[in-house]
Amino acid sequence: MRSLLSRLSFATALVLTPLAASPAMASSEPIAIPAPALDASRADSVQTAVLAGGCFWGVQAVYQHTTGVVNAVSGYAGGAKETANYKRTNYGDTGHAEAVEITYDPKKISYGKLLQIYFSVVHDPTQLNRQGPDVGTQYRSTIFAQNDEQKRVAEAYIAQLNAAKAFKAKIATTIETGKPFYKAEDYHQDYATLNPLQPYILINDKPKIGHMAKYFPDNFRTQPVLVKDVKAVSN
């Protein structure tokens, strides 16, 4: 379990700790991986993907900088509505994972490309029930498939990457279906953008945005799409 206060304290401690003695961090340099051989069909209307890969601050930040993404919202998926809150999910026994709901335009970016970004720069998919310094099932690597097609594409891509030995270890990412997404508290939305100098963000999440620009320049947008701006427009 890692509360918001302990996460901030941990990040501050990392700044004062020699790198060689620091725990694993989630911002290690990613590797280039092939695009999925099987992709979802190009729908005419906006689609939704829900992905979990460690702390939702960084996952949200990467997709907010992704061209074709209309909105990226931090939240919880995998458990019941009653336990879909930050305090309760931090116990790691609710079934929830910190997740991000990504609304995207399939005419500008495909579901497969979102997954390629997910496996390459968002997180390390070989870590089981953790991501960098954050430990627990709430930080697991999970694709919450929204339909049968997304499930097929995700399964095929994981099999493709494992067969190609794209990573040094087997992918630990799971695929879950039929699990509703619940939006997280407002103070978690746009967190990386609103707190760019916060130590945890500097250490774990800002490098991911840089990796996104480096590995996916054609899909990178400098100005992030923010939940607060989308909400203002919709209102």
Rank of each mutant, 00 (worst) to 15 (best):
F10G: 00
T66R: 02
N235T: 07
K168G: 15
R2G: 13
A26Q: 03
K170S: 15
N90M: 08
K107H: 15
Y63T: 01
A32I: 10
S45L: 10
V70W: 05
R42I: 03
K168L: 13
T142A: 14
P199T: 12
W57F: 05
L202P: 00
R42S: 05
F167T: 10
G136P: 05
A99W: 00
T94E: 04
A49L: 13
R221I: 08
Q223E: 15
H65C: 02
V122H: 09
Y191G: 12
P106W: 04
Q198Y: 01
M1Y: 08
K108F: 00
K183E: 15
M25A: 09
Q160A: 08
F216N: 10
K170W: 04
N147K: 06
A163T: 11
Q131E: 05
R140F: 02
A166G: 12
Y86R: 11
S6V: 05
N162G: 03
G210Q: 09
T142H: 04
S74P: 04
K165I: 06
A84F: 08
Y200L: 12
G53P: 08
Q60N: 09
S41F: 01
Y139I: 01
Y157F: 14
K113E: 10
K208P: 09
L115N: 01
T48H: 10
A97Q: 00
G92T: 03
P196D: 11
